[in-house]
Amino acid sequence: MSTPLDAVFQKVRSENRAALIAYIPAGFPSQSGCAKAITALAAAGVDAIEIGYPYSDPVMDGPTIQEAAEISIKGGTNAADVFSALKTASTAGVAAVVMTYWNPIEKYGVDAFAKSILDNGGSGVITPDLTIEESGRWLEATTKHGINPIYVVAPSTADARLAQVVAKTGGFVYAASVMGVTGARNDVSVDASALVSRVKKATDLPVSVGLGVSTREQAKQVAAYADGVIVGSAFIKLLLNAKSEQEGLDAITALAKELALGVREGR
């Protein structure tokens, strides 16, 4: 099986650079605003987009993404909106995946969720609270529909465990750069490069680093050792702080262009 996401990583590998991956929750800052933001990010040079399916109890997320998720849930975002955002992204020419906690998937129907990802041009799903032990039905569904099951690993993940997790993973391995929740940080810790090299010993899959990246300089640093650089909270903060929708779109476009330069300067 090969997804648009797999193709993105082949392409960036051939260009000897890292991929830029942006995160935005569906329904944020509004349903129409989200579609515009996705289109703007794609036009500004991001290689892939993670569409968040906001969940009421996001234990892996810091205050910025929590706030965006609350806005989205209050706006009534449901699975149909998530799939619609996915379609917007894939139509705009970028690889698109969904990132969500497990309960919304289970409630929607495990097989049906995987099928809807495929049907809307999506490549896979990042499941930050789904452990490999609980993944039986999910992996059946992702295999059946040919989408990437993307798992998150952390600095605390021991090598033996890491080997088990990456063996179940498709698309890329999501390396959480620090022990902690999502949110922009001044330093993307030294843990990140150490974790990436441990992951690379365990698998040939691309490895992307998330948690904390917000500037071109940080993107450049991470791109030196990782195959993908994931940026979420920094974009969301710009949208939250913007005085108008257009100002927000302009701001994320400018940041995405900077970051796109950053991921090309790392090597």
């Binding site: 892996m60 609270d129 032990e133 021991a158």
Partner: peptide, 20 residues
Amino acid sequence: VLGHFGQYGGRFVPEALIAA
């Protein structure tokens, strides 16, 4: 049984917590 009571229980947590 392995942290389960029938279909209930288990672990649905970030990988960061597994070691702990």
